[in-house]
Nucleic acid binder design. Structure first.
Lengths: 213, 213
DNA sequence: GCCGTTTGACGTACGGTGTATGCTTACTGC
DNA sequence: GCAGTAAGCATACACCGTACGTCAAACGGC
């Protein structure tokens, strides 16, 4: 069993495997034993590279925020913010365990501070007051996290992995009880999560732009 | 040990105790054994009234949405929606485990459908198209969930239970690295979560109102 | 070449979890 | 008084995170 046959364990390999495992089996199924066996190793061997399960979970959060990528600082702040928000929403939506994981952790990721700083910097450069920039941050961040939440847990929409029949059965069942819901049902079924996300985002961005000093 | 000395266990008593326990010790500390002992009963006795831990957790989600209360159908739709959104945010923020719990469950609560139907009904009555009502729902729901997320996990703000010193230490540490963040730091420290929430909510509501047919 | 030290994987064990199963107690209708 | 039933209890199992001790391989100084 030489190094050429089995590459050495590293923290990076562990986190990558943990992300892949969570993508496939869900975050609640992730255990040290299963993660170890995924890497061809005993559970306790992971502890030589990682502080424990909490360390793995925190690192997965960091992975998520790092996946959002750098903020484009060249273009208009509206375009910059829109692109960053879309990128963030796509990262969260593509890892359905992301919202649950982030909400189960206490501290915020270092990478999230960097993102926040970059976006706030663009607004301040543009002449916005720190107070308004602060308002804007909360409004935009709420929309991103909140929409990711909705997209991940929605049984509706036209994503390829959605159970279309189950959604229609639910709506048919609710129709007599919830008439207003029945009326918007066609739009729920055909919901494009990118377009829907941008609708709300534009409401917020144009509202903020209107308050530019 | 008669009925007068110990009132019988019921599902309602179990859920109430579970909510109280989560409020005090956090949702991750909630276990069947501890919940049983909180009620003066063995863990397995709970199973006579409840389908298992998942049933308890689902019922806690229902409790949350039921706590939001009925939608006021008398006043202007903007006021109606604003009041419901504020009520929802307050419920979530007052149970810090709410976001984590909801995001760990698959299905949506029945009570959440009722809330959605009531609000959508108000918009449709007002003359909004089903399509626009659908847009509005996503935008508003995102803001509520997303802001609850931020409020629960923020170390900043002026709530009475916030660790003010720790927040200032964090900001001082980040100041050299994140200059834009340092500039808005005073507003982070003095952040009023109700005002902040309403700022974003008004952006969305006025944006929707402007599109009224 | 040789030896002390460090590294990393392993195996065992402990206290915790959710819950299936069977037993026993207490109350109800007659 | 007594059968029937509801509900609390005790045991047991599989799984979890991880503290701890062992041991083989790798490495640096001489």
């Amino acid at each position: 069993m030489t190094a050429t046959e089995r590459q050495p364990l590293t923290k990076e390999r562990i986190i990558t495997a943990a992300v892949a495992f969570a993508d496939e089996h869900g975050i609640e199924a992730l255990s040290m034993r299963k993660l170890g066996s995924e890497l061809g190793v005993e559970a306790m061997s992971l502890y030589n590279h990682v502080d424990g399960k909490d360390d793995i979970l925190d690192s997965m959060v960091d992975f998520l925020f790092a996946s959002i990528g750098p903020v484009d600082t060249d273009s208009d702040w509206v375009e910059t913010t829109r692109a960053a928000a879309l990128a963030a929403k796509r990262v969260f939506a593509s890892h359905p365990w992301s919202v649950q994981l982030i909400s189960s952790r206490e501290g915020l990721s270092e990478a999230s501070f960097a993102l926040m700083d970059a976006l706030m910097g663009r607004l301040l450069d543009e002449g916005y007051s720190p107070k308004l920039a602060h308002h804007a941050w909360h409004a935009i961040a709420s929309h991103v996290m909140g929409y990711a939440f909705q997209e991940i847990y929605s049984v509706f929409g036209k994503g390829e992995d959605h159970d279309h029949d189950r959604a229609e059965r639910m709506l048919a069942e609710f129709a007599p009880k919830y008439p207003a819901l029945a009326k918007i049902a066609p739009h729920l079924m055909e919901c494009s999560h990118d377009e829907e996300f941008e609708f709300g985002l534009d409401l917020i961005l144009t509202g903020i732009a209107a308050q530019k000093p």
